[in-house]
């Protein structure tokens, strides 16, 4: 088990059947932005449990608070009130250092605009989470090489991001999100910048990750994309409008 790269470990069969192990849960989360005197409440008490192996799509009209929720789930931001448990840890009381540590250890991020670091090569970008986790260099290098091959970029290891197409860059980002074997992978409109063909490739990768038992949370505008997930959550005006499990 240990000798395999984390992203490559085959998912347990129990994850694919309906196992109800909670990996994360938000309870009555609110978020209010203060702009001077003006308080803007974006999230109005959101409660969701996320289970091991879930493939969730979050939908809703623009401005309804999807990204705000994702930022909280990603420990990049903290709720104004309510609690957020990630694994066994309550994040609402964490300080900046602890939040950084938990992001590095338990979360994987995929952004709409890829967000690779331009000075670094494909390999170095994929290694970055492991670098901040303090993994030994050779170990990181091996994992990154395997993951690059896994997303179909085994021949681009030493290319820089600007030498790659959008779809390829997003695949690097996926490999990077897998490198630390996260509890949850968060993807905020991952295909938003891609043409339909590249987008389809990314979604195919997501399907594979789901097959392997990864927990995926994806924000999307498109019903068609949401169809491929296994659980759809609709937000409206900062509230959960519906939470449907498909199949």
């Amino acid at each position: 088990m240990d000798s395999l790269a984390p992203g490559l470990q085959p998912g347990s069969t129990t994850a694919r059947t309906v196992s109800r192990q909670t990996v994360a849960s938000v309870h009555d989360v609110t978020k209010t932005y203060f702009m001077g005197e003006l308080a803007v409440q974006v999230l109005h008490g959101i409660s969701i449990d996320f289970y091991q192996g879930d493939y969730i799509s979050i939908m809703g009209p623009s401005g309804c608070g999807k990204s705000t929720l994702m930022n909280i789930l990603g420990c990049l931001d903290q709720p104004t009130s309510g609690s957020y448990f990630l694994g066994d840890k309550d994040t609402s009381q964490m300080n900046d250092n602890e939040l950084s540590a938990i992001r590095g250890a338990r979360l994987g991020f995929i952004f709409q605009s890829y967000n690779l670091i331009p000075q670094l090569t494909v390999l170095e970008n994929i290694e970055l989470p492991l670098f901040y986790q303090g993994h030994p260099e050779q170990h990181s290098r091996r994992i990154a090489t395997e993951l690059a091959a896994r997303v179909g970029l085994g021949d681009r290891l030493h290319h820089r991001p600007f030498e790659l197409s959008g779809g390829q860059q997003q695949r690097v980002a996926i490999a990077r999100a897998l490198s630390n074997d996260p509890l949850i992978i968060l993807a905020d409109e991952p295909t938003g910048n891609l043409d339909s063909k590249s987008g389809a490739e990314i979604l195919k990768l997501f399907d594979e990750l789901h097959q392997q038992g990864k927990t995926l949370i994806m924000v999307t505008h498109s019903d068609e994309l949401a169809e491929r997930s296994q659980r759809q959550i609709r937000l409206r005006d900062g509230r959960v409008e519906s939470d449907d499990r498909l199949s």
Partner: peptide
């Protein structure tokens, strides 16, 4: 700035 944001998201502490 964006690079800093990326690094922070990937687990870099302020001190890093």
């Amino acid at each position: 700035t964006r690079e800093i944001g990326i690094r922070r998201a990937l687990g870099a502490r302020k001190k890093d």
